[in-house]
Design a protein around this nucleic acid. Sequence first.
DNA 1: GAGTTTGAAACT
DNA 2: CAGTTTCAAACTC
Length: 796
Amino acid sequence: MDTKTLPDHSGSSSGGVDEYLVDPVEVDHANSSYSDSSKLEQSDGLLASNELKNNLISDGNESGLSMANVSKKQQIEISGVQNVGGSNQDKCDCSPQLLPEQKQIVPTIEDYGGNARASTGGPVENAMQHDYEASQNQHSISRRCLQFGEARPKSTLSSTSSSDPQNNITSTRQPLSAMELESSEASHVNSNTTSSKRLLVSLSQPMSTMVPPRHRGNFPFTISKPSGIGLHLNSIVNNVPVGCSATVRMKLADNNMSGLGMRSASGTSCFLPQNVKSSSGSSSLVEKVSDINEDMMFRSDASIAAGSTPSETLHPMESLKPLVEYYATPLSKMKVNVEHVHNFEEIKQPSPRKKRQMKKSSSTLDGDGCKRCNCKKTKCLKLYCDCFAAGIYCAEPCSCQGCFNRPEYEETVLETRQQIQSRNPLAFAPKIVKRVTEFPSNNAEEGNGSTPSSARHKKGCNCKKSMCQKKYCECYQANVGCSSGCRCEGCKNVYGRKEEYGLSEEMISNSGTEERLADTFDDRLEMVATEQDFLLAELYDSHHHTPLTPLFRGSDHGKDAPKLRLTSSRYLPSPESELTILSSYAKPMRSLGNTDSHDVFLDRSKGILDENSYGQETDYHNSEMVDQFSPRCDSLVDMSNLSPLPNPSMVMSSASSKTMGWTNVSRLQPCTGSSRYPSGGSLRWRCSPISSMTQLCETKDHERVDTDNRYYDIFDDDTPEILKDASTPNKSVKVRSPNQKRVSPPHTRMQALGSSSSGGGLKSGRKFILQAVPSFPSLTPCIDSKGGANQKESDV
DNA sequence: GAGTTTGAAACT
DNA sequence: CAGTTTCAAACTC
């Protein structure tokens, strides 16, 4: 059968892939027998995967496949190298974990890596890791180049600055090492190996170099974001906060672009713990981190999920926390390891029910953060699979059968995702979108969990019998209230009834018809995203190629957006990403603000994550967010310098970066598959978003600098600083205004926003921004004003 | 642990 | 686009 092809994978990959896959598992399981069995299973799975591909993916973009294949090959090579270096499977796992997507992550790491290397050289000394790193570095380097252009930019920023892949290679080693380390660590999270320390060291260095001392912790996040951004993160993160196992990787299947984000994101959740443990550049720190463990992880995860907030959360935390969070980001990057772990886990399928029970107790997420699916017929390649839908790889906790949602089958996964996306571009978009919050600052409500207003299910539920009081209801499950978009009957959602939703939003009532409401709702969601994540979104877009602009262009954002996206030659990683990102961003912010309870954070994260299903995007956002929050201007500035972005100046940069990145990306990455290996330039651009952030930072450095508290405050408000900037007379605002004109969001929206936002000028500003968001194109022009953005405007 | 219920996803 | 089927999670026993 297909096995023949599989053999190749199994042969090459099985050897390499399996091993590395095993490693991750091992890590989780502490060298459990999984590896062996998993290998076998995987090999089987590989065969099956081929079949699946044939069956499942009729469309299967060859480009994507080819890409995937390439990545696999690389992975294999890597794995082989790793094996050579470190005999331990675990080690291997770590390296192998680097999937194509992961590779992308690596690049990001590279950025850090540059910095990390020098510093890390010493710290990262685990024999395993060393070997692994050494071998991988070279391999990884090439990978990186292929996969991410982004890394380069960052790398350039960090240290080497070589945009060229080659340069990356040299520089990348450290980054890779760091990544690998992270990944390895992630895999070893349980083990608490010294490797983690390495990571810390490597990370720390980059951080230090890149970011000012304060923000160092954050800085890593920044980097990580780029790598991991993925959508899945959202879901994963949200759901899986601590865990780890879940592989966020989602890669991108949705969008090649998104893949990147996914990876990082996923990695984050899982990696954070590991990173923390491992990273302890200083033993004390490491230990502390390890001690912190879950809490930290949660935070980190959450932060990661949020994308932006990590630093913030950290700030409030003790010094250690920052470290943890800091590392957490890297972890996200490391998601590869996590993924592997998942794979193994899935393969072995320890005890589904137990896992389930675990899940039940913890709600959706496993303690590990894994979704713990139990798929039996879908091979975890359909949206039925929570893991797959979340953009993460199945992991140990999963009790799925015949799972192909593993790093090993990345190609299959990606292809399948593409197919699904082709049918429904929003299929992987976060389901939950943060609503335009009326009250960014008063989010205590959310903490209460009663805040229906904060977010909504984008599609809305269709409950008939559960009355939206059970987890059957997606809205309820996401801890969000029902909205006008819901078609539920007898809604009694404790988080907010459909009716209430409409009431709460004056706008809706104004609109009148449900359709209008629904539309408005979507718009609102988008709006919200824009507001909070506006800048981020832009960045995100740039990273993902997502044509946010298109959406924005479309006055109807929500509806049209998808179409526009679709129409666009490029696959948007996730049209939803916009919303998602924003929402995730916003939520995280809140959660961060609330840092108090992890639970809250987690809950939010879930919803948010879902929204961010596109890990990649999210990652970027996260990174961006991180940058904004933690990285500080300094780091940001540096980044901007490094970044190819023409104009680091201005907040607009973020928007511009989006457009820039977006356009560039589109060009560079016509195909989703290809997107993975975007030219360095495109990637760089994506990274550039950071620069935008930096810009913002510049404008608001003093504010940020003042205290972390401020950040928190910001988050509390839901309005990221960026937004604030935007809201403020900042450049961003101006830039946006033009777009706003275009967008001219529905009057209802405006009104509703205004009413809702009544809270304060900020709110109003946000709303305003939101409106602007739809008009993103204009923003880009502003940004591009220097560059291509203007063109877009003219086009528009 | 097995079986049922539920609603989303997928299919027609 | 609507209706039906399939699926896996959520839930119950």
